[in-house]
């Protein structure tokens, strides 16, 4: 059949350059990427991009750097499937295709002036880091900042040096916990939900921002509601297979919503009655 070239196809990735990579754990690697011409990605914290390795495929990856960092952006990628395995073989100087940013992120305009409680489980720190660093870069525009981090073992902790930096700040409160400690671990042991009751917060002006594995949401949200945080002030980012990013292919659909366009960030009141959302 006749093929004609088209401009402005939503499916056409921008050829982008990997500037730097950093191995973070056995399965996670950080990539710093620049769009052609050093153009800014201009994303909102919580949005994602589609990353292409030609000949292999495309995968949705959340942006991990803050939009305040301009000129390049960072993706922290877990090696888990065909595309991400191929990505892990790439180094600085290699090219990848980028489409996006896609979706609705954390609306920083709504968060402005309010107290923030961040709850990140496992890989949840990856998209949340984008917002945390945005908040830190604009620190006086927000109220108190509480960060709760949890993961399986100390070896799985991501962005260790950066987390240490956050911890040293007088304007950020930070707590870490692991499911299973090792001898060197000095922090908490136990589920992330156990850290929530001890936090002193003003529910009316607190936004709970929760990102983690699907199983985590129900338990964390229960604790936040017990703290009297209103439903519309609980923000979650949901994981689905966002294949096209354009609200068409159907893979990421949650009832009537397309996670790639309507999400991945939702307020709890919008999704609490959707079967299969949490």
């Amino acid at each position: 059949m006749k093929k004609i070239a088209i401009r402005d196809s939503e499916y056409e990735p921008k050829k982008s350059r990997i500037l730097r990579t950093k191995r973070m754990t056995a399965t996670e690697k950080l990539f710093e990427i620049a769009l052609p011409g050093g153009k800014s990605l201009d994303h909102e914290p919580g949005q994602f991009v589609e990353v292409s390795v030609f000949g292999v495929g495309e995968a949705p990856i959340s942006v991990s750097s803050s939009p305040t960092k301009r000129g390049s952006f960072e993706l922290c990628i877990r090696k888990v499937g065909r595309v991400t395995e191929a990505l892990h073989r790439l180094e600085a100087g290699d090219d990848v295709g980028i489409r996006g940013p896609f979706g609705k992120g954390f609306s920083v305009r709504i968060l402005e002036g309010n107290d923030l409680l961040f709850v990140a489980g496992g890989l949840g720190i990856v998209p949340l880091r984008s917002l945390i660093n945005y908040v830190i870069d604009n620190r006086r525009d927000f109220g108190t900042v509480n960060i709760l981090l949890g993961c399986k073992t100390p070896k799985d902790m991501l962005f260790n040096e950066e987390v240490d930096e956050w911890n040293k700040r007088l304007d950020v409160k930070l707590n870490c916990t692991v499911d299973k400690a090792d001898p060197a671990w000095k922090g908490n042991v136990g589920l992330i939900t156990s850290l929530i009751p001890g936090i002193n917060l003003d529910p009316d002006r607190t936004f709970g921002v929760v990102v983690g594995p699907p199983i985590m949401y129900r338990f964390v949200i229960k604790e936040l509601l017990a703290k009297k945080i209103p439903e519309r002030q609980i923000l979650v980012s949901l994981e689905r297979h966002m294949k096209c990013g354009l609200g068409k292919c159907g893979h990421c659909q949650i009832e009537n919503l397309y996670c790639c366009q309507d999400g991945p960030v939702f307020t709890y009141d919008k999704i609490k009655n959707l079967k299969g959302a949490l």
Partner: peptide, 9 residues
């Protein structure tokens, strides 16, 4: 890695 978006029609 040159690429082109196409439509078959």
């Amino acid at each position: 890695q040159s690429m082109e978006a196409v439509v078959e029609c």
